[in-house]
Design a binder for these strands. Structure first.
Length: 250
DNA sequence: CCGGGTCGCTATTAAGAAGA
DNA sequence: TCTTCTTAATAGCGACCCGG
């Protein structure tokens, strides 16, 4: 058996690494690898298809705002492909219309993802209204709030503001009354995957949970298996249905 | 402190495009 | 056409935040 030495410095930028919960982190804020990962995450969250690690590298992107100053020719040259360039350019332009709920979740702010952004969108209408009391009202905890405010002042106002094409307005949560909260147990017959079924349910106005939380009102069990979820649902008097399509109505 | 839930990371599989 | 490169989509899981 050979002992393995943990690295002490970041393989990318060379700065000193820091242990946190058995994981090593590079805390340098000028680390190129980190910035590339952030761009990746940004592209993925905003569904800019075609902008993966390799493309980011070839295009020489070092920060998020640079995505939006690229011309189709720049991309074509960098990727040496007109076909990919055309697609990617369209994806980038398309992403500019994203509501701020999605955009905010794309910045890699710790604890600020899709759900946190959605919570905020119920309280405030645009980025200028982000402050401590509104975060609290939206149901964000102290850590999440701290991270968000830090980002807002350090990164947004002192850097990104003015060089990104978004309108920074939250999309108001849909006013549709929720029909119910659904949890799916076991394999489905009506849909190939749970993800597809979830999307269909959300589209119809249902809320979908992956576990049987107390706000679940309908349990879908198409397999007939008496799963733990099924048992518990029976106990708590939750409606159990055997065909998901009854909810969708198609 | 505990249970529920979200976030972020990873592995896996599939699919599209380029290059030989 | 076959292979290789790159990205997409998704599920599983651990960490830990949030609220009671």
């Amino acid at each position: 058996m050979q002992t393995i030495q943990a690295p002490t410095n970041c393989p990318s930028c060379g700065s000193l690494l820091e242990w946190s919960n058995d994981l090593l982190y590079c805390r340098s804020n000028s680390c190129v690898s980190q910035k590339q990962k952030k761009i990746e995450h940004f592209a993925k969250t905003l569904k800019i298809k075609g902008l993966g690690p390799s493309a980011i590298n070839k295009l020489g992107l070092t920060d998020i705002d640079e995505i939006y100053s690229l011309t189709e020719e720049d991309i074509s040259e960098g990727l040496s492909s007109e076909k990919l360039a055309k697609k990617l350019y369209a994806e980038i332009k398309n992403s500019e219309a994203a509501p701020f709920n999605t955009v905010l979740a794309a910045f890699s702010i710790p604890l600020i993802g899709k759900t946190a952004s959605d919570k905020l969108s119920k309280i405030i209408t645009d980025i200028t209204e982000i402050n401590e009391s509104n975060c609290k009202a939206a149901g964000l905890g102290p850590k999440a709030t701290e991270n968000l405010l830090k980002w807002l002042h350090k990164d947004f106002y002192s850097f990104y503001d003015g060089c990104l094409p978004f309108d920074f307005k939250f999309e108001k949560a849909s006013l549709v009354e929720t029909l119910g909260t659904v949890c799916i147990s076991g394999k489905l017959k009506s849909y190939k995957t749970k993800a597809l079924a979830t999307a269909a349910l959300l589209d119809k106005g249902y809320i979908v949970k992956s576990s049987l939380t107390k706000d679940v009102t309908i349990l879908v069990n198409e397999s007939g298996v008496e799963s733990a979820k099924t048992n518990q649902a029976r106990k708590s008097g939750i409606t159990i249905i055997e065909n998901l399509l009854d909810l969708i109505g198609e």
